[in-house]
Amino acid sequence: MLNEIEQNRKERQSAWEYVINYFRKRSIWLLHYCTGCGAVELPPVMTSRWDLERFGVGPMATPRQADVFLVTGYASIKTLKRMIRTYEQMPKPRWVIGFGACTINGGIYYKSYNVINKLDRYIPVDIFISGCMPRPEAILAALEELRNMIQRGEAKGYDRYVKNYDWYKKNQKEILEREGSLFGEADDENK
């Protein structure tokens, strides 16, 4: 059994990577970007009731020193612009947690004209937390899962961003620098 696990591991990552990942997963600095209402669940998670510190996770004030980018909820178009800038400032390896239904498909803001629906189209998300808003336990579970993914070498959002850079940039541009109306001329005449 142990041999099997060892074998699997070796196929995916070298011993050196394994050790690095082991340490990486044990000191995660969170950049909690409080875009939406879900952010109110973070103070209890970080303070004594659920105490995030015991997992080696702490809040970080600047993107240049953070590992995990926590997007807490809906992102308006103007926010998206800042988010992309923040994300690109973070050093690799960097991970993104999409927090709440709004980051998955728009949630209750699905019909809104100024809130994006799928966060994954603009920056690569490693793990989503469902719920509107997610309970602190769910946040802890997600962090735990992210730690496991880091250890297994599966959380590779930053690689995805590099490999599909054109695709992400195209999507971002579609929103931020679109030219012309989305409704055709025929639609305009009716209005």
Binding site: G106, S112, N117, R160, N164, Y168, E177, S181, L182
Partner: peptide, 30 residues
Amino acid sequence: NWKEIPPMRKDFDTEEYSKRAFDVGEREGA
């Protein structure tokens, strides 16, 4: 970067706009 009619007018279809602007395509590229 607003290119449509002003959004709070009643004849502006927010749902349709949201669909066309944000709900396009799957995540196949990523």
